[in-house]
Each structure stands twice: as C-alpha cells, then as structure tokens.
Simulated scan of single mutants.
Amino acid sequence: MKNSFPATGTRRLEDPEETRAFGAELGAALEAGDLVILDGPLGAGKTTFTQGIAAGMGVRGRVTSPTFVIAREHRSATDGPGLVHVDAYRLLGEGSSGDPLGELDALDLDTDLTEAVVIAEWGGDLVEQISERYLLIQIDRESAVLEDPESEARIFSWEIRRN
C-alpha cells in the first residue's frame, strides 16, 4: 500500500456516499499483493465500501456482495492491479480445508493473487495468513445508533498488521 494512506486511523462516515468516497481514497492507495480484511456485522457497509475501493482502483464491473458466488474478480480498466472480492466466511465454511490460500486456489480464479488486491469480507481471524501484512478494517454500525437511533453513520477503524 502506498504511503498516502495512513497505517492506522478511525473515521466516522455518515452515509453510503461518504463510505464509497473513503473506499475510493483507499483504493487509490492499494497495490498488487495487498490484502484488506473487512470485519463488521451484517449490513455494516462492507460491500458499499468495496464499491468505493473498486472505483478508486479503476476496475471493471459492478461490485456486489460475493456471498452467493464466494469470490468475484474485477479486472483493471487501467494498468493497475485487479480486484478479488471474497466472502471469507463462505470460502472457509463447512467442508473447507481451512487453508484460505488453498481454498482460493481451488476456485480456479483467473487472477494471480500476487498481482491483485484481495478484499475479504467477513475475513477477521480467517484469511490473515495469505499475506505477510494486511490491512484490517473494523466497521462499527452500532455506536452511532446508540447516540442517535436515526443515524446511519458507521465508524471505520483500521490498522496495518503483520503476521
């Protein structure tokens, strides 16, 4: 990841547009081989954030939840890396070997993971070992609602971690 994106931080995002804009900011800083793990409850905005990342990276295709297909590939519209968008929980669900790299390889993706950015939804404590370092993003959708039940804000906290 380029140094233009801070290694740690917290940001409150008020709506889906701000979430996509923040994703685009991160997407512009991502490089081939980067792993981003998105951790947060159902409806937290993981896919919305990934839509922004895809826009910032300049990849092709509509970004939707990977839940029903396990992984989606998006090729670059420029000379940048492609995007592999994974539902890590389903990837490593019932019947899996428990080896995320092996399970990704078994999907027979057209993309070499070292030449792409991998975004893993539901990836906390599941896919960290596929990279020596990764960006963990935790999404809190409850704190803002406790303050104001009408709020749609999400609080994004992130840090770069190493294995």
Rank of each mutant, 00 (worst) to 15 (best):
D110Y: 09
T8L: 07
T64S: 15
I130A: 03
Q138T: 15
L30C: 10
G124F: 06
E18K: 13
V84M: 05
A55L: 14
E150L: 13
A116I: 08
P66I: 08
P149R: 05
R20L: 09
V118S: 06
I155T: 14
G102S: 01
D87G: 08
E128T: 07
E115S: 13
E150Q: 13
P81G: 10
I130R: 06
L136Y: 05
V36L: 05
S97M: 02
G33A: 02
P66Q: 08
G45H: 02
S143W: 00
L13A: 01
G123C: 05
L38S: 05
R141S: 14
D105Y: 14
G43V: 14
E152H: 10
G98Q: 10
R154Q: 12
A153P: 04
V59L: 09
D110N: 13
P149L: 09
I155W: 00
R62C: 04
D125T: 12
L101A: 14
A32C: 02
P81R: 07
L38C: 07
D34R: 04
A116W: 10
I139D: 12
E132I: 00
L146V: 14
E73N: 04
D110S: 15
T8K: 10
A24I: 03
H74N: 03
Y89A: 14
S151F: 09
S96A: 13
Y134F: 15
D108F: 04
R60W: 00
P16N: 03
G123T: 01
D79A: 06
H74W: 00
E115Y: 01
P100A: 04
D125C: 05
L126R: 15
A29F: 11
D99S: 10
G123E: 02
S97T: 15
E103W: 10
R20K: 15
T78D: 08
T64K: 14
R72C: 04
D140G: 12
G9D: 11
A7Q: 12
Q51C: 11
A32K: 03
E25Q: 11
A55V: 13
E94F: 14
D15P: 10
V117G: 12
G58L: 13
R90G: 11
G98N: 13
A55S: 12
D79I: 00
E103M: 05
A44T: 01
E115F: 04
T47N: 05
G124I: 14
L83G: 07
G102K: 02
S65H: 11
V84Q: 05
V59M: 08
P100Q: 08
A77D: 15
A88M: 04
I130F: 06
A21C: 01
D34G: 04
